[in-house]
Design a protein around this nucleic acid. Structure first.
Lengths: 223, 223
DNA sequence: ATTTGTATAATTGTATACAATTATTAGTTT
DNA sequence: AAACTAATAATTGTATACAATTATACAAAT
């Protein structure tokens, strides 16, 4: 009786494709052709199509009425909704963390914030964003709310795509630092209401930043 | 230039399979074999596998470490999380409806509630559940919050599976009637805070009912 | 010049053959 | 009888051939 956990070609293809989309290597609205991609990634169309379908389900790829594929665009409306949903779900996660977080969790979270501060001082926007997401992911992980986590993971992948785009053109939410500090403090104090509110405020503040940056980028492009 | 909107074999297969799972025709934990299903549904393995993968992504089908498939079980933990998430997201939807609902929307919602009451008096649990979900779906539709709607649709399909199971063994939430009345009234009054709270309370009340019924069923089975 | 029709090419959708992996059975040893 | 092994069957994973559909190019007609 053998137990299998080999990595299927489908999964590798999925990861590679998603990364290219998040990193804007495949740009919004760009058309996608199966045969080209299959050759590029060195797999046949079968596992590629399975990867594509998963990305379709997650709204990273869009199938047009004529059956052709393109990379999803990012609309302000979508971004607003995604951050709005995240604020509610992650607020609940933070409340949960305030109830259950251990001393060790606090130490780990503090480390992540320290790394963030460091990246910020170096002006390393990409790592600033990366460590910020690690902070949020850690809270999801220790929550043991697996359904919350699953829903959030998809939304956060979209958020990441968006943040990467914004942070390529300038600073990301410079208040994120202090906001994370406040969240962590509330969790350490086991203040459930405070943790929930701090997290909601933080995510809605990030939304405001995102919308603001996008307007700036659009104006720059028009000028 | 021809425009295509034909129904693909993959989509039909997906719908048929999901329905069988929601209706418990394919029972929780039941193993699923590709070749059998393909023959049963009259399609080849290729479109079937695409349908299966979509249902995997939505957690209706589970792929075990050895690659074999089974129908997802339903755990109390999952149900709790799903209703908890719904309470927040649909609360926001209800708030939105209180802001934007038209006279015509109020009329349509009233009709749905009337149908529910009627089904309840006839003791028709299945239709009672069906019309209840229509009420919720209608609010999502008019919200124009497409990302909210997409997330909710998946959660509601799981909820429906669960409610159908419960309502086969007895009455569903008998307070749902009055709770819907209250929600509708708040929306008609354009009371945003009231609508959000009424919806959250309603969904959490349904959760309490669900958990209660499940315990009853389990006890009956053990006796 | 614009439109229309037709032939051709390109792309996606489906079926199927085959490869890789896992489960089962039977036989052997202890 | 229990445990291990080898051979076989069953199942899933991948590649590929072909069918169906859609896009493109080009000629003919208005």
């Amino acid at each position: 009786m053998a137990i299998r956990s080999r990595r299927l070609s489908k999964d590798n293809t999925y990861d590679a494709l998603k990364q290219k989309i998040i990193d804007s290597e495949l740009e919004p609205n760009q058309p996608v052709h199966e045969e080209n991609l299959a050759a590029l990634l060195g797999v046949s169309r079968t596992p590629l199509r399975e990867a594509i379908q998963k990305l379709e389900n997650e709204d990273f790829l869009i199938r047009q009425p004529n059956g052709r594929l393109r990379v999803a665009s990012v609309t302000l409306k979508e971004v607003e909704e995604i951050f709005q949903i995240r604020s509610m779900l992650e607020g609940y996660i933070a409340r949960n963390a305030a109830k259950h977080a251990t001393e060790n969790d606090i130490v780990n979270l503090t480390t992540m914030i320290t790394k963030m501060k460091h990246s910020f001082q170096l002006g390393d926007n990409q790592n600033f964003v990366t460590y910020g997401f690690e902070f949020h992911d850690y809270l999801s992980e220790i929550s043991e709310l697996r359904t919350f986590e699953k829903v959030l993971n998809q939304l956060k992948d979209h958020s990441l795509r968006y943040c990467r785009f914004v942070s390529m053109h300038g600073d990301w939410n410079t208040q994120a630092d202090e906001e994370h500090d406040l969240i962590l403090q509330m969790i350490a104090d086991h203040n459930e209401d405070g943790a929930e509110k701090a997290m909601r405020d933080h995510i809605l503040s990030s939304l405001a930043t995102a919308l603001d940056r996008i307007k700036g980028i659009e104006e720059k492009l028009e000028a």
